[in-house]
């Protein structure tokens, strides 16, 4: 398993660079991850990232865009504005979670 040094910490990642250990993530790490993919974090971004972290704790899997809208309360359109082109994967990456598995 590869290890990246992020925000001064040794962080386990998979072959694509997604974090593999839920507890190795913190907000400092998220800031670095966001910067690496050219996302400037605002309150609106944090709201989604925090929802994804909480939702993962109870559901055991990463929320899809659909779920971020219906349960997290952030419309799909806004997700695309905040995390352009590939919102679901970018959100999961910054939240330190696996890519969502669901098709929808």
């Amino acid at each position: 398993m590869p290890v990246n040094e992020i925000a001064g910490k040794q962080i386990s990642v998979n072959e694509e660079g997604f974090l593999t250990k839920y507890d190795e993530w913190d907000e400092e790490v998220a800031k670095v991850l966001a910067k690496q993919i050219d996302i400037e974090m605002t309150d609106a971004h944090w709201k989604i990232i925090k929802f994804l972290r909480e939702d993962f704790k109870t559901e055991g899997e990463t929320a899809t865009s659909r779920r971020v809208q219906t349960v997290g309360g952030v419309p799909v359109k806004e997700q695309f504005a905040l995390f352009p082109k590939k919102p679901a994967k970018k959100m999961a990456y910054i939240a330190g979670l696996p890519k969502p598995k669901g098709c929808v």
């Binding site: 290890v3 990246n4 040094e5 990642v13 694509e16 997604f18 690496q36 993919i37 082109k85 990456y93």
Partner: peptide
Amino acid sequence: MTPEIVPNFGSD
């Protein structure tokens, strides 16, 4: 240390 791995979110 292994090199940084960052996902490629840009489409080819």
